[in-house]
Simulated assay, not measured.
Amino acid sequence: MRRLLFLNGIKAFEAAARTGSFAAAGHELNVSAAAISRMVHLLEERLGVALFERKANRLVTTAAGRAYQSGLTPIFDALASLTAQVTAASTRVLTVGVGPTFAMKWMIPHLAEFRKAEPDIEVRITTGGIAVPFGDDWSCGIKLGDGEWPGLVAEPLFAADLMPVCTARLANTLKRPADLKGPSLIRVAHSPDDWPSWLKAAGVPRLTARGPEFQFYGQALQAASDGLGIAMGIRPYIDDDLAAGRLVAPFALSVPKGMRWYLVYRGFHAEQRDFAAFRRWIIRAAAEPAAARKGARSAG
């Protein structure tokens, strides 16, 4: 008869060993760090083996802990994959977590392309911002960062390049970066370094952006479209607007933001048929120039 020993404790240990902390494991399993610590301690007592060395600021797995975790993680991944395969036949819904501007400026405008290719797969978009943790109900997410999210696979999609954008009428008054004026430079509250980075690269580091400030890039880009000033655009948010002529780039200079956009997901989703179709589509779509996508949509 199979004897399964304290499954909650085993789950808590595997998550803590994989993520490197009780706090991260608690977030993944929706319990407190203290609860993870207690379950791991009880598991160690029942096994009669120390699985962690408790250091002041970090956890270090013992030799027994490393051996246990190396066997447990593939088992949990296989269980998650099996569950996904069993449920795939009865539900064809993908939940994609994105920030509000990414949803508005890229995902929603391009979703018809995916629906045309995969009409039987429903995509649900949930928003909340780049800093929102990966949701338990997410099939995948699209995040801006350095590509390091413990416990998640991260595949690069877009380079997050910065480039000022405005209306064509306003662009005609700008011959060189020195023509820019601080009060006309629209700001995004959560990205205060965008303008300083670009202005430094453009050779006008003493110029300070003092224009209207908005919470999200989408709001700033809308303000620029309405002629309020010059917004700092970030790719891919501006690609379709540039291709359609709604906005123009008065200067050719673009500056890397220092991060990239990534498709992030838990490893077991890679074997799920519907997610695999979405993954192939978005990686291909991210690699296509905006002008090519616009032409393809017009032809359709």
Rank of each mutant, 00 (worst) to 15 (best):
A178F: 02
R169T: 09
R246N: 15
L174T: 04
E118T: 01
I108Q: 12
C166P: 11
L79A: 13
K257I: 00
A285L: 14
C166R: 08
I130A: 07
G218A: 02
T62N: 02
A154S: 15
V188Y: 03
S298C: 02
R3Y: 11
V60F: 01
Y265R: 08
E288S: 09
T73V: 13
R169N: 01
D146P: 01
A292W: 08
P150D: 03
G9Y: 06
I108E: 13
M104E: 15
I10P: 00
T167H: 04
G182I: 09
A171C: 10
G300R: 15
G129F: 01
I234L: 04
P250V: 04
L180Y: 05
R279E: 07
S21V: 11
L247I: 10
V60T: 15
S32E: 07
L42Q: 14
G211C: 08
K294D: 05
A286P: 11
R18V: 08
P205M: 13
R273C: 02
R297C: 05
A201V: 06
M1L: 02
P256F: 04
L180D: 06
L5K: 14
L111F: 06
N57F: 08
L242N: 09
R280C: 04
D146F: 04
M1C: 01
L82F: 09
L47N: 11
L79S: 09
E14F: 00
S184N: 12
A249S: 13
A80N: 09
R260W: 09
R115K: 13
M39W: 03
R279P: 01
T167K: 01
R54L: 08
R66W: 02
G295P: 02
P133M: 02
T101L: 03
G295L: 15
A159R: 11
S32P: 09
P183L: 04
L221D: 04
V93G: 00
P133C: 02
A287C: 12
R38H: 08
I125S: 04
A202K: 13
R46S: 10
K181D: 07
T62I: 06
P177M: 07
K11C: 10
S81G: 14
T167Q: 05
L162M: 11
V132L: 14
A209M: 07
A252P: 01
A89H: 12
I282S: 09
Y262K: 14
D77I: 09
R46N: 06
G147R: 10
L199P: 12
A244D: 13
P119D: 06
L152Q: 06
R176G: 00
A277Q: 12
I121S: 07
W261P: 00
A252E: 15
S254K: 13
C140Y: 00
A290C: 07
G71D: 01
A63L: 12
D146A: 11
A160D: 03
